[in-house]
Amino acid sequence: MHIAFFGSSIVSAYWNGAATYYRGILGALARRGHRITFYEPDAFDRQKHRDIEPPEWCRVVVYKPCEDAAAAQLEDARGADLVVKASGVGVLDSFLEKSVLALKSPRTRVVFWDVDAPATLESIHTSPDDRLGPLVPDFDMILTYGGGPPVVSAYEALGAKACVPIYNALEPETHHPVPPDPAFAADLSFLGNRLPDRERRVEEFFLKAAAGVPGKRFLMGGSGWDDKPMPDNVRWIGHVYTHQHNAFNCSARAVLNITRDSMARTGFSPPTRVFEACGAGSCLVTDAWTGIEQFLEPDREVLTAVDGDAVAAHLADLSPERAAAIGAAGRARVLAHHTYDHRALEVERLLEGRDTGAPALEGAAR
């Protein structure tokens, strides 16, 4: 089938954490024979910070961030078997969410794909400017990249015909073990942009942990942290491009995942960093969140921490041998159960009505 996808960006991960998710899911669907067109606005300097050129399996259309240009791309998408509007495009979101529904037809089904469901739902319930909530029942299906039962229930309460999480996963050809790079050497590394609902947890789980073990080396990657006060044993290196992620993950004793506030409250939302680190064979330490056991076994495939003191305690006791064993076990788990090929099969079954009891989307056959 032809999938027309309106998202933030597939070629740039600059201020765009969903990029690797889009590449993984859509690349896996392309391998299964589906045709992909990805529409993204030229916004937030993302085109100046491309991580990749348009992949051969995807037609990428970059448009000016204005309604006339967006309307032209909507017309271009008319007649596709499946039209997807992702959350968080960043510009013209309300316009696109309303306009894609006009593309529905006996041949074309329209899906809202929420890549930040807790934040989206909070906006629906609290923002006086929200326009998405009343449209939820009009979409043929709501897909999310996480959230578990609380998110499903919340969308069903808004009238969603069906809501199904399609979780982050690993793309083994992209994220895999590589030799360590001295430029990224550390005892604990963390990668994440500075965001309002992440900063407090970074202070607790990363900066407090660093202050607690001054003899350990901490490395931070991500945009926006340039004026953030940090302990002397923390080194900040700015934006880390996708092609550098493997070296970043493989050059530290352990890699830390810190879930954003909204995701931590909802649970069942493993970020892309979880699978990237495990795919590289890194020893992953994550803040504890509901549902982690669905993806990785604590103490064998991942280390969990309830606060910065617990992170520091893990580092104090973590030998190279144990770190390597946890990294190997985590990698084996995600390769066996959590790759984007697994997720693409889930999506395909959903669209054909062969899984979870969700209704089939007419016209969605390959």
Rank of each mutant, 00 (worst) to 15 (best):
Y39L: 08
G238I: 05
G222L: 03
D138C: 01
G79K: 11
R331T: 06
V311E: 08
A332K: 15
P165H: 00
A30C: 15
P65I: 11
G327F: 13
L26W: 10
D227W: 12
F268Q: 05
E362L: 10
N233C: 11
R273I: 08
G27T: 12
V60Y: 13
G146M: 04
H239I: 03
V202M: 06
G357W: 09
Y241C: 07
W113I: 12
A344M: 12
E321D: 12
V136E: 00
V255H: 13
Y39S: 07
A186R: 02
G308V: 13
A28V: 04
P54Q: 09
P196W: 05
A211E: 06
D51E: 07
R235Y: 04
D227Y: 11
F275T: 06
C283W: 11
V11C: 15
Q47V: 04
G279H: 09
P150I: 15
A358N: 07
R50A: 10
A72I: 01
V164E: 05
D226F: 12
A247I: 08
R50F: 08
A316L: 09
F206L: 14
G221R: 01
E293N: 03
L143Y: 01
E352P: 02
M220N: 04
L96T: 03
G267E: 12
W113K: 04
L256D: 06
F44Y: 10
D187F: 08
A277V: 02
V306A: 14
G17I: 14
H342C: 05
L318C: 07
L350W: 01
S223T: 11
F206T: 10
G308Y: 13
G363E: 08
K161A: 09
M141Q: 02
G148M: 09
N246G: 07
M1D: 12
T339R: 03
D140S: 14
N257F: 03
A69G: 04
A344G: 09
E156C: 13
L361S: 02
P214W: 08
A71I: 05
V11A: 09
H176K: 15
E203W: 07
A254K: 10
S223Q: 08
H337K: 01
T126E: 03
Y145M: 14
W57P: 00
A186E: 01
E301P: 13
R107W: 09
V115D: 03
S99C: 08
F139A: 01
P271T: 15
D129K: 02
Y340D: 09
P134D: 00
F184Y: 11
G24L: 07
A332R: 15
V347N: 03
D309T: 11
H337Q: 07
W225V: 05
H314S: 13
A360S: 03
I326F: 10
I25S: 10
E75C: 08
G33F: 07
R265M: 05
V100H: 06
P172L: 00
P196T: 04
A323W: 09
G17W: 14
R50T: 10
D116S: 01
R194Y: 00
W225C: 07
G224K: 11
